[in-house]
Computed example of a mutant assay.
Amino acid sequence: MNIVITNSPGEYSIQLAKEFTKRGHTVKFAQFSLRHPFHFIREFQNADIIHVNYACHGLKPLVINKFFGIPYIFTVHGVGAKDLLKYEYGLSKKVDFFHVIEHKLTSLISRNARAVISISQFAASRLKKNYGIKTYTVYHGVDLNKFNPSISGRYIRKKLGLKNNPVMLWVGRFIPWKDPFTFLNAIPLILPKYPSAKFIMLGEGPLKLNIKSFVKNSPQLRSSVIFPAFAEKINEYYAAANVFAFTSICEGFGYVLTEAMACGIPVVASNQGSPPEVVGDAGLFFQTGDSNDLSQKILTVLSDKALARKMGQKGRKRVERRFRWDICARQIMNIYNKALVQEKK
C-alpha cells in the first residue's frame, strides 16, 4: 500500500511510518506549504490512501479526493479546536488564527474523510458533541525503549544540584488548559512536610514569562522551582523524578502521561478529560483545579514507598499492554483497509 501522511513528521507520523514500513508498505510525507499551489498533485498522485493530521492540512487531500478519488483518513489530535478556543482565545493572534481556522475546517474535512480517528474515548465524545463526528478511537503509542524504568536520572540530579531531594516533575506547554498554576499553588502545601523538595517545570509556551514572574515573587517558590532549558533527553528527567504531576483541564490524550508511566514513575493526574482513561488504576487522581487535593495526593505517594513502587510497576505494565505503536499501527491499518474497500464499492 502507498500511504501519504500530511504535515511535518512528528512523533505520531514517524512511529506510524516505521511500523507501516516494517509491514512492507511505502510511506511518504507531504509537507504543507502555500507555495507552488499545484505541486501537491504530484505529492499524492501515486497514493492509495492519505492520512491527514490537522484539518488545515486537509484541503489538498480533499481536492485530490474529489478529482482523483483517492480516499483520506483524518486523525484529530485532541478534543478539537472549539474546546481549546474557550481556554486559549486572546493568548496571541497566531494561536487565535490557527484555532479559528482549525475549528472552521474540522467539520468540512471530517464530512469528506473516509474515516475519522480520535485519540481517546474522551476526545471522541467531545468531537461528537461539538462537530457531530463519529470516530474510531485509536490510542497513541509510546516508545518503550526510550522510556523505560532502567533509564538513570543521576545525570539530571547532578546537573540540577539535587541529591536525595524529593523531586516532582511537571511537563507540558505553558498554556491555560494545561493549568500550570494549580501545580505551583500546591507547592507551599507540600514544603512544610518536605522542605528539601524540588519542583521541575519543563516546557515552553506563552504563559512561561508570567509563571516565572509568579515564582520569582514568592520566596518559597523561588528556592524550590526549577525551569531547566529545553530537554532533549526528557526520559532522564522522568527518571530523576519521584512523582509526575499532570494538571490539564481538557486533555485529549496526554503523551507525557504514557511517557512517565513507561518510565515507571508514579503519576498523579487531574480527574477530568482523558487521564482517568489513560492512567486507569495505575495512578492517583485529584479534583481538577484543586491545589489542595493535588498536594495531598502527592504527599500520599511521597510518604508511602511501597505504594509509589506499585504505582510505577502498574503504570509500566499498562503502557506495555495498551499504548504500543505496533498496536496503534495495526488498528489504523485496519481502518485504511476498510476505507479502501468502501472506495471500491
Rank of each mutant, 00 (worst) to 15 (best):
V256R: 01
E19T: 12
V27L: 06
D293Y: 01
P166Y: 06
K216R: 15
L169V: 04
S13F: 03
K305H: 11
I117H: 02
F183V: 05
P180Y: 01
Y12Q: 02
T75A: 13
S295T: 07
T26M: 10
V319A: 10
T26N: 15
V301S: 13
R157Q: 14
Y194I: 04
I298R: 04
Y72K: 00
R35N: 15
D290S: 14
N337Y: 04
F323V: 06
T106Y: 05
T21Y: 09
G289K: 04
Q342P: 09
P276A: 11
S150Y: 05
R114E: 14
K297H: 08
H103R: 11
Q313M: 14
C250Y: 00
A329Y: 03
E236P: 07
N165G: 14
K216P: 12
V138W: 00
S295V: 06
G69Y: 01
L202T: 12
D290H: 07
S213L: 03
K314G: 09
F230H: 09
Y155G: 02
A239Y: 06
G203N: 02
S223A: 12
T75R: 00
R111E: 11
N334E: 10
Y54G: 03
P228W: 01
K305C: 08
F230N: 13
N164L: 12
A262Q: 00
V215G: 12
I226D: 13
L189G: 05
G10P: 09
N65Q: 14
